[in-house]
Design a protein around this nucleic acid. Sequence first.
RNA 1: GCCUUCGUAGCUCAACGGAUAGAGCAACGGUCUUCGGAACCGUUGAUGGGGGUUCGAUUCCUCUCGAAGGCGCCA
Length: 554
Amino acid sequence: MILSMENPKEKIYSILQSVASDLGVGDVEFKVEQPKDESHGDFASNIALAIFSDVKNQKSKIKNPMELAEEIVSILNTKYKILDSDFDKVEIAKPGFINFYLSNKYLQNQVQNIILQGETFGSSSIGKNKTASVEFVSANPTGPLHIGNARGGPLGDTIANVLTKVGYQVVREYLHNDVGGQVERLGEAIYFTIHPDQKPKDYEVQYQGDYIKELSQSVKESLEEKDLSQEEFIEKAGKIAVKLMLDEILKDCELMGIKFDKVSKESELRHKVPDALSKLQKFLKENDGALWFAPNDEFLKDRETVVRKSDGNYTYFASDIAYHNQKFEDKNDLVVDILGANHSGHVPRLQAVVKSLGFNTDNFKVILYQWIRLKRGDEIVKMSKRAGTFVTAKEVLDEVGKDAFRFFLLTPRTQTHMDFDLELAKKKSAENPVFYVQYAHTRISSIFSKIKNEELEMKNSDLSLLKAKEEVALIRKLLVFPYLVEEVANNFEVNGLTTYALELATTFHKFYEANQVITKDEKLTQARLALLKATQITLKNTLDLLGVSAPEKM
RNA sequence: GCCUUCGUAGCUCAACGGAUAGAGCAACGGUCUUCGGAACCGUUGAUGGGGGUUCGAUUCCUCUCGAAGGCGCCA
């Protein structure tokens, strides 16, 4: 049995599967994972516990998990000669875990490997020759991007980065809602701001706030020459305003480090609605003069949705049907929507649409993120676009900067209802964890800036000199990265990347405190420089995925 | 009323059903004649509450309390 060590984790998994077959329990489900505690090895498996708890397999000999683990390890040693490969040690632990320890030699050699891979370290081929569409932000253009919408920005962008990293060809998409009642309301708000005397007493203006005044000014300038009726003015004002808002939103996105590849307009999608609906004939029904999407899906019973109003106009939902139909007809292997929690009710309908259109819902992922709750000290800030009381993304961005902004928003899981203290954010921006990570990168760059002697180039360094506790720990941490990237590409939980960035920085800082890199011992210096190089690469690659800069100086 | 999500340390957040629940900030106490102290080390401190499933539960089920959001011919 020869172990190819390209991917130790997969290797362990496949060998354990063979062992399971040897034991006559080939169908058992077990895991191989990377324990968080170093003392539990580089990889650990619960296979013995899994076999034990699998009732069906208990019919013959009932052993306890520890004995089972012992038997498995002995098979690994004898039949599969696992210690002849790059493993140092295979141990059993308490309830019945089997822990695998990589040899120092294997670990040391990986340093060179990382350096050779450089910026491709962490890449994989799971998305090779595949395309993905990631839609995010898609904010209503009836007001500026606020801090709530903004969470989807870094999130979608980072997911797109990760998918790119694993080989997908990714299109970043934005949907511009430039038609519908909201656009008219916006036009009205502008009209009545310019002509307050004409506002009917019982009419309630939908959108308010300083931005409406500014918008009104801009709209007025471009329309004042023309002689328009109130109705024409409102219509044109809405269109102009919505375009202005889009430009502003996209500009804010750029401040966040985001550029979209494709901006679709709802007004154009509407032309494609009839085609898309024709594919859904079976699931459409007329009622009260309106046309409804009514799939015979258990979950959607009594939740039918209108696609064409009785006045003949299509709804936003109809546009979304056309939009998703197009995304899939564009032959995307993966379609990802990043939506705020206020769209939670929309999700099952979208899934039903994708399914009813005949596409595979496995290729359709919707990521819902919870709203951010804003606080000023102890006071909760209520945000309302209507009342004009909201905090814009730009305000916060200007205050804390892109890097801290992104890192902060990417740290919690998407389901977390995070609290954002504006005062604290301003006060503490200099102490944001992101600087801790960036500082690690800066420290490394600083050391390299001191190396002038070419003899200290780390090619051919003797990596076996890297055996200090902190050195080995650092190598181990570096090797987690490719597994993490692949995991995130599968589960979209990008917060794992920020956690990892912090852990990696910590491991580095500890190494740095304990070991002088540049010393009179040239061989050791070379080896440590190689380790630093590999660390720098990994930090940079992680920060790149997060869209956070990796500065040489701070 | 129904549906979704959340409740972890004083605060903001982590933890594929796994092993001693981890970080940062705050508080307190240490570490520099060395590559950047935006660092390192240490102390105090937490799973809202009750049941259940499991060898094992912050994680799954159930009840309960609390918070956010959704339940339109709006988007």
